[in-house]
């Protein structure tokens, strides 16, 4: 990336993904560039050697993208499928509005991780920041470390699993019973993410569903 334009990098990756050749690609010197390896539509292995800017792997479909560094805001935003792995930390809005696939963050994730997520699975090996899973609709957010303020505010049907402490829960987010089916889901996710943790160590949080239909006694939560 020190010598190649972003458009050329993305065009090459996008055509390779579309052609289903599934060859490994390596990007060196990413220099924090934005919108890297976004819009891939097909199986492809991409490794980025270094840290990236905004919207890395945005709207990914099927491709496996690994960032050997930290990722900027909105990594894997609106991802549809595939796997995005961040070896370092992720900035705010990681996995925002993602519909599917796995976002595997080995370090910490900043604020608004999984905001408005719609079916994506996100595993964060470290901690997550405030307002994470805000208005999260579907999918699973797994946090091996601690969660910041207002976790799961205005949550819909996404499942949140946190091993460490939760600084505070957002409106309409409550701790829920960990049933066998949840242990099963979590076990599978931890395995896929290569996480060294036991499902039994986690607590589950979900929507109390009190904001689903307006009721006058809940007006203060809006």
């Amino acid at each position: 990336m020190a010598t190649t334009e972003l458009r050329e990098v993305n065009t090459t990756l996008q055509s390779a993904a579309k052609a289903q050749v599934n060859e490994p690609y390596v990007i060196v010197n990413p220099r924090g560039s934005h919108a890297m390896a976004c819009g891939l539509d097909g199986p492809l292995n991409v490794t980025v050697k270094g840290s990236t800017g905004y919207y890395t792997a945005g709207m990914n479909k099927e491709a496996s993208i690994t960032v050997e560094g930290s990722a900027g805001p909105g990594v894997a935003e609106n991802m549809m499928s595939g796997v995005v792995t961040i070896l370092g930390d992720a900035s705010q809005y990681a996995g925002a509005t993602g519909h599917g696939g796995l976002l595997n963050i080995k370090g910490n994730a900043s604020s608004r991780c999984g905001i408005s997520m719609k079916g994506i699975d996100i595993v964060v090996h470290g901690n997550i920041g405030h307002m994470s899973a805000f208005m999260a609709q579907r999918g699973n957010l797994v946090v091996l470390g601690d969660a910041g303020d207002a976790l799961g505010d205005s949550l819909y049907e996404a499942r949140l699993f946190v091993r460490g402490t939760v600084k505070s829960l957002g409106a309409d987010c409550v701790e829920k019973e960990m049933r066998a089916e949840h242990i099963e889901i979590l076990k599978e996710l931890l395995e896929r993410a290569g996480a060294d943790a036991k499902p039994e160590e986690f607590k589950r949080y979900g929507s109390a569903r009190t904001l689903y239909n307006f009721h006058i006694d809940n007006a203060a939560s809006y």
């Binding site: 924090g32 840290s51 905004y54 930290s70 930390d89 900035s91 604020s111 405030h130």
Partner: peptide, 22 residues
């Protein structure tokens, strides 16, 4: 404001990089 600004700093590969809390 963005990590990009650090790309040419000496020793950035080994630096501790984080975001200030709100």
């Amino acid at each position: 404001s963005e990590y990009r600004a650090f790309a040419d700093l000496p020793g950035i590969e080994g630096a501790r990089v984080w975001e200030p809390e709100p």
